[in-house]
Design a binder for these strands. Structure first.
Lengths: 340, 340
DNA sequence: CTGAAAGCGCTTACAG
DNA sequence: CTGAAAGCGCTTACAG
């Protein structure tokens, strides 16, 4: 394999100069720089990552911690992150977060500590205190995206407002009996309900209901899957007094609600109105009203934020203030007034 | 940051021994190994990736080239790969493949050549001759998954059989007028139709039709998206003699067909039968008959294959013969007999 | 089974 | 603007 010394020889300069010319760090005359660049290109020389990292302390690599890789939302965010990093010459190393305790220990105690990355993006997911301590203990810039913790700078949508907007949309359509389906935090959860997404959406829902003078809001628990939404909706819709509208905390849960409605012979929106959250790529197909939270753009923002932190001259300038991300109500055919 | 020499001092051995004890390479007495391990754990020492890579030539990292990260199919395959790599201590670096020529050049000519990874998994996508040459020129083990080229070992489903099985299912239901929707290769494509997935599925479809004595099979071109399927279906269904059944080359295209049918007031399967391919997670929700190709398992297989190649004592033993992946017809409510 | 020492391929003060 | 040399933190023949 061709190394930096061969390029130096061919260009008639020292390896020092080759390094400087190629990296753009340090002063080199324009003529020399150009000659070195062309020589490197001609010889097909590319800097070896490991050597450059060891010598410089910079890996030119960003780690992304992702729960549920195969979920549309996270895959889309990831795509947005990749779109930012690649053009800037950064690679992206993926750290999948599972529910397996052994795998998580390996991730936080070993994988992440190999110093393979310069910075870390953590996508929403529940971390224990211990795990958060490991992340902050890395001494690396960290950007969270919807992470339910205040321990490091995190970009987030105002999820309380999301819950409120979704609920108010249904109220405006004339519904009073509106149920909310979401995940509920286990009592033992390390997450702070103040920051945690499902809790915030639920709070927005409850506030909107209270403002409308409606007591006893109805909540049904489900995990963030189609089937979770389907089961919860079945329970709700077969009760003595089925709601006329359901606000699901994700579009995938809302798909489950639509399935349950179909299985029970209910028409949407004739018998039941349904609204979700996310802006899922298939929501148009299902004619589902939703709150779009632009996940691809969220990924881009997270990518920009980590790059800013990495390239800021001083840590102070990194200025990773938690930023608020936009969202938007997209009205489609799944919401209408209540049945007469 | 704590280094190997501190561990050596604390354990009362040389750094040589620490390295051997922690890596498992080379002989160390069991007692010494255990003592070193405990010392390392107590001090929170983890080997620095860059230093170990530079010294050993092993990066403990696998690269994955992915087109369309946000597509369910690829995200699911990726999840399968990650599930294999993580437990074996390998990290995963993502290389997103876009349509932008500059970005692709950067990927193949620079990013991939930084020697950040020990091996590469290339997910199905069209590569030019030049790009393939760059990949094979890396001198790294490479495993393709559905890659339309014979240049490196590739795991693949027998897509001709997939096309045949899907078509025969519709024939058995009594359909004669069956259309196929898929992507068609541009004339300038670098892909060999012998290997390329859409061509093979189409060939299976045509063969099944011919065997049933049906001339003039009907083909409509579309890209692999919901909207692509929707447009193609519109054209087909509004023609003078609309088909009674449509075989879409992916589930997402099939969703588009379902949408078109709904928009045209056609009932499925009353007026139109529809079958897709993939085993998409939402296919059950759409009640869509499909050919499941188990993408998560495909990812696991690709992960196993690259690990086997990396850990084989000799390149010969790596034995990356192209393997054939399973698929399965899953019959649901979207297919029935033709209208009377 | 264990260790001293060379070396992996770069980057970067330091000096000129 | 340019270069000689030290050093980044490990691994691994080689020798014992």
């Amino acid at each position: 394999m061709i190394g930096i010394d061969e390029v130096a020889r061919a260009a008639g300069v020292s390896t020092t100069t080759v390094s400087r010319a190629l990296s753009g760090r340090g002063r080199v005359s324009e003529a020399t720089r150009e000659r070195v660049r062309q020589t490197a290109e001609r010889l097909g020389y590319v800097v070896t990552a490991a050597a450059a990292t060891l010598a410089s302390g910079r890996a030119q690599n960003v780690g992304v911690v992702v729960p549920l890789l195969d979920r549309w939302f996270f895959a889309t965010v990831l795509d947005g992150i990749a779109a930012q990093l690649a053009p800037r010459g950064y690679d992206l190393t993926l750290y999948a977060l599972t529910d397996d305790p052994a795998q998580r220990r390996g991730l936080f105690e070993t994988s992440l500590r190999r110093r393979r990355v310069d910075g870390l993006i953590v996508l929403s997911g529940l971390l224990t205190d211990d795990e958060v301590a490991h992340v902050t203990g890395l001494g690396l810039p960290v950007v969270g995206l919807g992470v339910p913790r205040g321990d490091f700078p995190s970009l987030r949508v105002d999820d309380t407002a999301v819950g409120r907007v979704a609920t108010e949309h249904l109220l405006q359509r004339g519904h009073r009996d509106i149920a909310h389906i979401s995940e509920s935090l286990p009592a033992t959860s390390p997450a702070d309900p103040e920051f945690e997404i499902p809790s915030r959406r639920r709070r927005g829902y409850e506030a909107a209901m209270a403002d409308a003078g409606i007591r006893a809001p109805r909540f049904a628990e489900a995990d963030f899957t189609i089937d979770g939404g389907r089961r919860a909706a079945h329970a709700l819709l077969r009760s003595a007094e089925p709601p006329t509208a359901i606000f699901a905390a994700s579009d995938e849960m809302a798909y489950g609600v639509l399935t349950a409605a179909r299985e029970l012979g209910l028409s949407v929106p004739g018998d039941l109105s349904v609204i979700g959250v996310d802006g899922h790529v298939l929501a148009g197909l299902f004619d589902l009203t939703t709150i779009d939270q632009f996940p691809h753009a969220q990924g881009e923002r997270a990518g920009e934020a980590i790059l800013a932190a990495l390239e800021a001259p001083t840590p102070a300038e990194a200025g990773l203030a938690a930023a608020s991300l936009p969202f938007e109500l997209v009205v489609r055919g799944s919401t209408a007034g209540p049945p007469a």
